[in-house]
């Protein structure tokens, strides 16, 4: 799978490296929920800069991660949504429930530290 998950302080940082199949999105979703529980992380950053499409399935999966983590007291920040992808998502009407957003990894960490 084209994703690496790193632990930094009490945060998890998941970097998506390439386009993902639905199966890989499900794996990522489950891994993020499991890892947050295992490390008792306070926050998760998902870097989606490499995704050239965020469709209904990816949106729903990211929302599920955020909602699940919120119940465990962890924040989820999605960073790196590309301008074209952001326009497509809003034209589609796709939202991200319980997800915080930031421009990039640096801004995402700032948001979690705040």
């Amino acid at each position: 799978m084209g994703v690496s998950i790193l632990k930094q302080r009490d945060y998890l940082i998941a970097s998506i490296q390439s386009a993902l199949t639905d199966t890989e999105v499900v794996q990522l979703r489950d891994a993020l929920v499991a890892e947050v529980a295992r490390h008792r992380s306070r926050g998760v950053i998902v870097d989606v800069a490499a995704l050239d499409v965020i469709d209904s399935f990816v949106s729903r999966s990211l929302s599920t991660v955020a909602q699940t983590n919120r119940l465990r007291g962890a924040k989820t920040v999605v960073v790196g949504i590309q301008p074209d992808v952001a326009v497509a998502m809003s034209q589609f009407g796709l939202g991200l429930a319980d997800v915080h957003t930031a421009l990039d990894l640096e801004a995402g960490l700032e948001l979690l530290d705040g």
């Binding site: 639905d22 050239d52 499409v53 965020i54 469709d55 209904s56 399935f57 074209d84 326009v87 497509a88």
Partner: peptide, 20 residues
């Protein structure tokens, strides 16, 4: 345009998922 190309790619993703 690049934005429209992203629209196309997203729409394809959705209808291909309907197929599978």
């Amino acid at each position: 345009s690049r934005t429209d190309a992203t629209f196309v790619a997203t729409a394809i993703s959705e209808i291909a998922r309907n197929i599978t």
